[in-house]
Structure formats: C-alpha cells, structure tokens
Design a protein around this nucleic acid. Structure first.
Lengths: 203, 203, 203, 203
DNA sequence: AATGAATGAGATTTCATTCAT
DNA sequence: AATGAATGAAATCTCATTCAT
C-alpha cells in the first residue's frame, strides 16, 4: 500500500471539484484550483480521472441524475395532487416532501452543479429536459381538471419559465442555506407561492 | 467628423459585443469575435475600451441599469397595487405595463445580458442587488397590509428567489420570443402566476 | 498593414519546422522550439497554423508528396531501362536524373521529413506505400526479362528492403551533403551499387 | 535467495523493456507500460535502474554490442572473401553465416532495438559507429585488390549508406519474419544484391 | 525490496492584451 | 485612428522521477 488511502484522495478531489464547480461552473473551474483545494498536485488528478469531463461525470454521475429525476418527478406528482384540494396535505405529499428534503440535504452541491452549472457538459440540457417533463406533467394534470384546456405556444413557454424557476429556486436556496431547517422553511414558502400561482396561470 | 466616425465605430463595437455576450456569455465571448462582427481590428477595440470588462460595462452602462431599475420598480409597485384588489387593472398598472413592454422590446439584448449573462463580471451582483430592491418593495407593501408581518431570513430568501425568477423569466421569454404579441402573452401568464402566488407566500 | 510581412513570418515558421522536424521527428519536435528558431512567440505559430499537425502538413504538403512520387517513379522507370543494357545511359535516364537532382536539392529537408521523419503523421505510411510501388515496378520489369520469374514472400520482402534502403540512402545523403556536387557523386555511387545488385537478387 | 529474486525481477524488467522499445521506440516507450508488462510497480524500476536511459543501456548492454560487433565483423570479412571469388562459398563464409543466424534468432528484439530503435538515446550513434567500422573493413578489403583506390568523402558516405542499409534490412527482416527459414531466404536475397553491388560501387 | 501515489516540468493550445507600423 | 501580428500567461494533459509507507 502506498502512503495515502487512494479512496480518500479520490473523495477529496471529487468534493473539491463539486465546490469549485458550484462556484465557477464547468468552464470556469480549473483543474489546478480543484487540485489545490483537494491538497494534491495538478497531475495527480489525472491518476484518478482521465480528464476534466470524466471528473465532472464522477462528481455528477448518471445514477445520481436518475435518482434526482425520480425524486423530483414524484414530488411534482404529489404537488399536483395538492393544487386543487384545499384540504390538508396528503400522506403521499408528506412522503414525497420528506424524500425530497433528505435528497436535497444529502446532495446539496451535486444538485447545484447538475441543475445550475452544467453548461458545457453532457448534462447541459438536463435542466431543460427535466423542466419539459415537469411542464408536461402539469399540463396533463390541468387538462384533467378542464378537458377543454388549450395550451398556446406562449403559455407553454410561460409554464416552462415557471418550472425552470422552481429548479432555479431550489438551487439558489441550496446554495444559501446549509442549515436544514431554514432551507425547509424557505422552500415551503416558495412552494406555497408556486402552488397558489399555478392555477392562476391557466385561468 | 472624426468625432462622428469615432462614435459610430464605438456603437458598432458595443452592438457586436451585446450580440456575442447574449449568445456566449462573458466568459465565452472573445474580443476577436466581437471585433470581427463589428468589422474592426482586434486592437482597435482597445482604443475605445480599456479592456473586456470595460467593454461589458459600456454595453450595459450604469445609466441603462438605472432606467431598468426604474421601469422595474414602477412595474412592481403597480403590480403590488393589483395583488389585493380583485377588480380590473388600474390605469397605473396599464401605464407601467406599457412602459415595461416598450423598454423590453427596445433593449432586448441589453436586458438579456444585464440580467442573464453577467456571470464573471463585476456586474455579477447587479441582478441580486436589483432583486433585493424588489424584495424590499414587496415586503414594504405587504407590511402595509399587515403591520405585524415578520420576515425571517428564510422567507426573505424565498422572496429573493421569487423575484430573481421574475427577472429570469423575463430574460428567458425575451430570448424565446422576438414577436411582441407572443412575448406579451407569455409574460402575462407568468405575471398572473406571480401575482396569485405572492400573497400565498406570506401566509 | 502590420509591423511585419505576414508571409515572411509564415515562411520562417515553416523553415524552422522543417529543420526541427528533420532533427527530431514529429513527436520530438516541440512547437516551442520551432517558434524559438523562427524567432516568434509560441502562441504566434497558432495565428498561422491551427495546430501541430496542420503545421506539419504545411511543411510537407500533399502537392509536394505528389511531385515527389512522380519524380521518383519516373526515375525508377528510367533506372529499370538501364539495368539490362550495358551501353551508355539513355537520354530518358539522363533527363530523369537531372529532374531528380533538381528536386532533391530544392526540397532537401522536406524530402528528409516526408520520407524519414513522418512517424505519427498522415504520411506515416507514405514511405512504405511508395516503396511498395517501386517494388511492383521492379518485379514487372524483371518479369518481362524472365516471364517464368516467381516471387516468393521472402523475396518480395528482400526487394522491399532494397527499395526502402534506396530511399533511406537518399535521405541520409541529403542530410549529409548540402553541397550538390558531393551529393550527386555519393548518389551515383549508391545507384551503381543498386543497379549492379538488383539482377543478382533475382538470380 | 534475495539475490536470485532480484536478478529475476531485473530480467523481467529488461525483457519487458525490450518488447516495448521494439514496438514504440525509446521516445514512445513509457516506464509505466514497461513496469506493467514486467508485473512490477513503476517505482521499483528505479531500484534496478537509475533512469530510462540506464534501462535502455541495460536492455542493450555494451557486452551485447561487442558480440554483435564481432559477429557482424566476422560475417563482413567472410562476405568480403566471397566478393571476388566466383566459386562456391568458402567454409569460413558458411561458418560465419551459421553464427550470424544463430545470433539473429537468439537476440531478435535486442538487435531490433539496438540497430533500429535507439533514436533519442546516447546509443543513437551506436549504429553509425558500427557501420563506420564495417565501412573501414570494406575499404581495406577493396584497397587490397586495388592499392591505388582513392576514397572521396562522397564515396565514403555512399558506402556508409550501403552498410547502414545492410543493418536496416536485417532489422526490417527480423521484424517481418519470426520464421527462421523465410528470414534466411530473404537475407540471402539481400546478401546477393549487396555482394553483387559492392564492386560496382568502387568502379 | 517493493509499492504506487504523488510530484512537477513540459507539451499543445487559447486568448486578452500590447505595440510597431 | 486603425491595423492585426505578436506576446505571454494560463489551461488541459502526459510522464519521468521521487518518496512515504
């Protein structure tokens, strides 16, 4: 065995990469800075990752994106169930909320990078793709309530902005609050805003 | 004459800079490309602007930011007046809306760059600063309605996200629609969403 | 116009590249050294050539390789006509020889690089390809003299070595002698050796 | 025991080095790949050899070069004896040929590397040095036949090319044919070519 | 004696900025 | 005032060599 634990260094590099990526984005993040923050030499990064892109993919892996997609989808479905009902939150909603929070807190920077700093990477289009899916879910839901609903190009664009902003708000608040309680409070505020606003958009 | 020519070249460079900045952002925009689109030599750019950042500031000048601030402020104030009233839009609201649209259409790219592509410049904070002002306006308004209103750190952050997103939506829709009618329709949808959501946030 | 003549610098860079390539080969030649010898900054090389490979192709262009192929082919055909005849050299032989010498002296380093230092470039296989062609020409010629001629795998390999060495000798002598007279004398010696040896190989 | 193991590891490293050097040349061979093929750690290579160049020298040691020199010298002397005689090969020639073949087959890769892949090492000049010796032998021989023989610079260079090519052909055919019979047939073809050509060069 | 992680110099390439003309 | 060639710093990546264990 060599002088250090390989896995520990790898982990340090990935953590440093996430921090720098969240701050500067992919293009602005330099391997040199990531290495410096991880406390290793520049060249050593290449013992662990074939290149900058591979390092990014290790920091935001496919599997993580799949989980994120699932958690968000579930939550939006649960939210949809809440829009029309004026009663108390359903158990499904509560469960999805709990899942979401656990996920958000566990993967703070990873989510920030995946949804907010992926320009120039393979996840470049991820946010929009995800948002499109949420938009489609939302339209389907409101069409159930009003089968005559017509969705113009402009309205779809507005809806796209709404959901893009939902993710943007999540990213912004994740960056702002490391503290779980405050993060939750802020996200609940934003969620109320969003849920109350949504039906008005379709009016 | 020389003065006239000088101004014309300066103008061409600024226009080219706006186009490239809107497309690629500050980091991705190269002086060479801006010069090429402006039809001048690279070095000549430096006769008009001390550097890349100064060129950015010329493309999005303080005075423009002040105008934008004013237009947005007026509009937000007018919007606020609409939140509680369930009646038809006030004349002030209509006027602010008209002003906003004139402004948006006249300064499309400048707004896109100022609010959406300033990352990596000292104007990076501009958007947040502007948003902070809108947030303060909003809080003042809702405090009038309920003097006992307490605004926690989390709530202020949520509000910040809300207004940041209002600007983000504007930028996104400006990029999406060159057509004034569709732009207006989409912005109206988003505005309804926003206005309906806002009171719920404070609940 | 700028401070220097663009074409002159381009020429200087290509000359420097040829010199370094002839000394170190493609892999061993560094842009920094080429730039230093050309008397320009490293980065300036990239104003003239998109990259190392493009610089190589400018130093040894397609058109040059075509000419070289033509000159060599003609010469080998003329040589073939001399093998069997014991009389004085034919006019065709004299003309091909004159052409060859003019070509060799005019393109000294370019030939050295194309035939001897092309490893890792698009002309990597050029020498062998060219040699294969010469081998085929030689076999055709000797088959005319003796239709029953059989060429085994081993014999073809030996012939390949012979012609590969003919080009290698040319390259070596070009590097050795800048002086035309000595180069000619040495190449004539080698040619006599080659022409006398060739029939013996087929015996 | 430790000594025995040490020697065994050293041997493995040298064998791996020979294989990689023959494939990629000195510049293209990386210590990491040599170590991997030898089944040892990179750093361990440096316990046995001070550096890349020393490893090369161990792979092609002075003593081996001396043997090669002797075998070649003997063979060239024997060949010389055949040039003028038109009779059957002498017993000395047959013996030298047998020795040469045994040597070639036993040291395939080492010869390939020593004579063909030494570029960029201090053995770079080895081949030329060896060739110079062969050239001197040849001149001495032809001077015996014609004491008035004058050897110009150009002629010596041509002769140098001839013998350099003799080694090059050997290397090329060694790489081409692992099969002893074909190797022998091809080398015999080349040898006939060489022996028939040599007197013509001096004419 | 052996490991292989770590280092750091050097390679190619890009681009904001300078400067001779 | 204008040109655009030239500069040089910085980025990504490779690899011979070192060194803590």
């Amino acid at each position: 065995m060599a002088q250090y634990q390989k896995d520990e260094v790898r982990e340090r590099i990935v953590e440093a990469a996430l921090a720098v990526l969240a701050e500067r984005g992919f293009g602005g993040a330099s391997i040199a800075e990531i290495a410096r923050r991880a406390g290793v030499a520049t060249g050593n990064v290449y013992r662990y990752f074939p290149g900058k892109e591979a390092l990014f993919e290790a920091a935001v892996p496919e599997s993580f994106v799949a989980s994120m997609r699932a958690v968000l989808r579930k939550r939006v479905r649960a939210l949809a169930g809440v829009v029309d009902a004026s009663g108390p939150p359903s158990p499904a909603f509560a469960a999805a909320t709990a899942d979401l929070f656990r996920f958000l807190l566990e993967h703070r920077l990873r989510i920030v990078v995946a949804l907010g700093r992926a320009e120039g990477t393979r996840w470049d289009g991820l946010r929009d793709e995800l948002v499109d899916e949420l938009v489609t879910l939302a339209i389907a839901h409101f069409r159930e309530l009003d089968p005559a609903l017509r969705v113009t190009e402009a309205r779809r664009a507005a809806l796209h902005a709404v959901y893009r902003n939902l993710t943007a708000a999540t990213v912004a608040l994740l960056l702002r609050f490391a503290d779980g309680a405050k993060l939750r409070a802020a996200l609940e505020d934003y969620t109320r805003y969003h849920l109350a606003g949504l039906p008005a958009l379709f009016r």
